[in-house]
Amino acid sequence: MLELIEQFDVIGAFWLNIRLAAVSFVLAMVLGTVVAILRLAPVSVLNWFGATYVTLLRNTPLTLIIVFANLGLWLQLGIEFVPREDNPNFILENNFWLAVLGLTVYHAAFICEAIRSGVNTIPVGQSEAARSIGLGFGQSLREVILPQAFRGGITPIGNVLIALIKNTTVAVAIGNREIAYQMRNMMEFRPDAGILIFLIVAIGFVILTLPVGLGTSWLSAKLAVKR
């Protein structure tokens, strides 16, 4: 098993999944929060934008989004994230960011809904009290609503993160050499290893996602807003 892990750089491959997940999660949190704010804003055009974003992205297969990032944004529109000159790793690096883009816009839709479910845990009186001391919409969100929504939404946000970590394997579709890529290599060149290949990958993901589940349960209990 160890020999297999070394031969195919399983650790390096998983490291790429971790980087994809980490960067995409941070960006999806930012974008998801922005979309959630659109959906909560007292302006119906913004609500419509937010709702349309969520409906579109949530209902499009992730593979389609990521392949579109590659074929559509890069090959057709020429959008590039890293300098091409003197960069032997241009394709790999650009594919990384195209995958991050796809993962981000897709999971932002779910983060938005997770935050909204957090908002639903907040009694309406909290925002009325915020408004009644003279806080504007932005201040009410920042000081009163979002801090409580994130706390109430920790568990659903954790679920999105777990899904995101596993969904990073879709990045193989546009040539990222992450674990799904190495799994295919292993199956091709070491057919004798058989079921062990699947076990290695499965255990790897359990190691990555289990702490997230435990961590969010712990955080959610620790940070729960007592009412």
């Binding site: 009694p123 009186g125 909290q126 009325e128 009290a129 915020a130 408004r131 009644s132 001391i133 003279g134 806080l135 504007g136 000081e143 009163v144 801090p147 409580q148 706390r151 807003v225 007592k226 009412r227």
Partner: peptide, 23 residues
């Protein structure tokens, strides 16, 4: 808008359910 927020700042409101900021 802002004008309403300014007005509310000058008008104190006490609710039946207190509505203290829980966090």
């Amino acid at each position: 808008g802002k004008a309403l927020a300014r007005l509310r700042a000058d008008v104190g409101m006490v609710f039946q359910s207190f509505n203290l900021f829980s966090h």
